[in-house]
Amino acid sequence: MGNRIIETDNLTVSYGSIAAVKVISFHVEQGEIVALIGANGAGKTSTLRALSGMTTYGGRVSFMGRDLRGVAAHKIVGMGMAHVPEGRGIFGNLTVLENLKLATWQRRDKKEVAADYDRIFNIFPRLKERRQQSAGTLSGGEQQMLAVGRALMSKGTMLLLDEPSMGLSPLLAQEIFSMLAELNRAGTTILLVEQNANMALRLADRCYVLETGIIVLEGTGKELIGNPQVKEAYLGT
């Protein structure tokens, strides 16, 4: 048993009378890449939203041993959980630099912030080239890089990624995924939500398969790639 960074206990999320997530219990350990896969409406995004305090939920969510109930979203970010939302949430009329700077909104450690700019620009040299450009003019892949870079700027040690491959060509998606693997090697724990099950399973250490708000399968990435049920439902033949 490693060190559990995220642990949910009977998590439920409902919008009105519709239950998007019906009782989910899972955990993420320090240094892992965990993927939540499943079809549209399986409750993946809702789960992430609950984790980062963007929606009300039932059950218990703890982050680094601390119960997150009642903690405001911006405080959760300050604790080191960075959420890259679905559709990236880029501030299109602001420059790349301003986007990155916004993520340091609560940080007072100026020296480390300066070092983090260097680090991000090292990982994503493309962002450095385009730092004065308004973020809306970036290509999809660059926007995704910016979204991830921004999450890292908020001193995120735990990354929640909602469909990082959305709207990207397979080649670009591959590029993003290898960057994620690299980040993970450097010590970032990652919780990934994906529709592209194939790529997610290859990258992830462990996987949970969601179907209409419940976990139907779990296992290591390799196990699930070979699983006939997963093959049929998500990977195609």
Binding site: G78, G89, G92, N93
Partner: peptide
């Protein structure tokens, strides 16, 4: 400005 651009993302960026 970030609220104008995307309020949810702004929350997620610790604003």
């Amino acid at each position: 400005l970030s609220i104008r651009e995307d309020e949810i993302a702004s929350d997620l960026m610790s604003v």
